[in-house]
């Protein structure tokens, strides 16, 4: 079903959502930095930054999350699991790449044998309102990575900015629950043409130039390639590109306790930290940046596709934008792919 929303009613619309749901959307704690957060006031919502630093995965798989609390009484203990979400949620203003990434994380967290209840509970109780990207950034390459700037998959509702209004599509049953919202109006045919136009422009801008297709096979042959000897050199081994990546899902589990009370907490972790794989004996199976960078790229473009049939990258460009040394994953892919290796214009830097 297709509807629209006048922008002058935008804040009232958000307020109406907040009556029944906890609302999560991008906010800017300082100019130039954007994160997804639970909204207290509709005016906080800030959609100016196309890709917020912290991706929407933070809403389903928070950077730091208490799994369960416990109390010890003598030799006995009592445990209280913390997965339950009391109120239904709405995630508003996530872009197609972030939403696609949530379904990627879902592939690993919701399994046949074991299911991550913390993720699933949040996923189930969240209605996702996606927002199309009229002006993709030069670092965006979603179309090459299996998505596109207006991909509806994964969204329950989808918004497209038409200037004065938002064009609104209800896509799923969950989305249809909002059908009766008093601020939605009928669309007119002009809007549909405008949507087509915007889509066309954005698709053209994003292009398909990054060789993600076929990369899995290519990398099969490259496990011990000298490529890895050089490609990692400038990486300083921080966690920017993995923490901020919407598809990265690695975590650490730690206990925090005082006296007889405590909690088991999980925190995002990164395969680029040496300590991530360091064993108690002192042995580290990935001793240098070479193995760690290989893990990051191979996991995204070879191991994950082997297990789940899709690369674990949605082309959001965060790892390019925020890397302190400009490690550009697109260039790594170009270089690794046969194309670049043949007509090598510039050395990998």
């Amino acid at each position: 079903m297709k509807l629209k929303l006048d922008k002058k009613n935008f804040e009232d619309f958000l307020k109406s959502l907040m009556e029944e749901y906890d609302l999560y959307a991008p906010v800017q704690p300082v100019e130039g930095v954007s994160v997804f957060k639970k909204i207290e006031q509709p005016s906080e919502v800030n959609l100016t930054q196309l890709v917020p630093q912290k991706p929407a995965k933070d809403i389903f798989f928070p950077q730091s999350e208490v799994m369960f609390c416990y109390e010890m009484a003598g030799k006995q203990s009592r445990m209280n699991s913390m997965e339950e979400i009391k109120r239904e949620r709405i995630l508003f203003g996530a872009r197609p790449c972030d939403i696609e990434a949530i379904s990627i994380i879902e592939k690993i967290f919701v399994g046949e044998e074991y299911t991550d209840v913390y993720f699933l509970e949040k996923r189930r109780k969240t209605t996702i309102i996606g927002l199309g990207c009229n002006h993709p950034l030069s670092t965006c390459f979603c179309s090459s990575a299996g998505g596109d700037p207006f991909l509806r998959a994964g969204s329950d509702l989808f918004f497209i900015d038409l200037g004065e209004t938002y064009f609104v599509e209800l896509l799923t049953e969950k989305g249809a629950a909002l059908r009766k919202n008093r601020f939605f109006k009928e669309v007119d045919p002009n809007d549909l043409t405008l949507v087509k136009e915007l889509e066309g422009k954005a698709f053209e801008k994003v292009g398909y130039s990054i060789p993600v297709e076929g990369i899995e096979k290519r990398l099969d042959l490259m496990t011990e390639s000298s490529f890895w000897d050089r490609v990692h050199e400038k990486c300083i081994g921080c966690a920017v590109c993995t923490y901020l990546c919407p598809t990265c899902h690695c975590f650490d589990m730690v206990d925090e306790a005082l006296n007889n009370k405590g909690q088991r907490v999980r925190n995002w972790d990164s395969c680029l930290f040496p300590i991530y794989s360091l064993e108690t004996s002192g042995h580290n199976p990935r001793p240098t940046g070479r193995e760690r960078t290989r893990q990051r790229l191979m996991h995204k473009f070879n191991y994950f596709p082997k297990n789940f049939g899709r690369v674990a990258c949605v082309g959001c460009g965060r790892c390019i934008l925020y890397c302190p040394v400009q490690f550009d994953i697109r260039e790594a892919l170009l270089y690794a792919s046969a194309k670049r290796a043949k007509g090598l214009k510039r050395k990998f830097r």
Binding site: I108, F109, G111, E113, Y114, D116, T223, H249, C250, F251, D252, M253, R266, D269, C271, Y276, S277, L278, E279, T280, P285, Q295, M298, H299, N302, Y303, F304, K306, N307
Partner: peptide
């Protein structure tokens, strides 16, 4: 094999060797 582990159920990512997880 041994690897540093956390979740033990193929979620936390840490113990993979190629596309296989040592824990799972």
């Amino acid at each position: 094999l041994e690897r540093r582990m956390k979740c033990g159920i193929g979620k936390c990512g840490r113990c993979n060797i190629g596309h296989l997880y040592v824990c799972k």
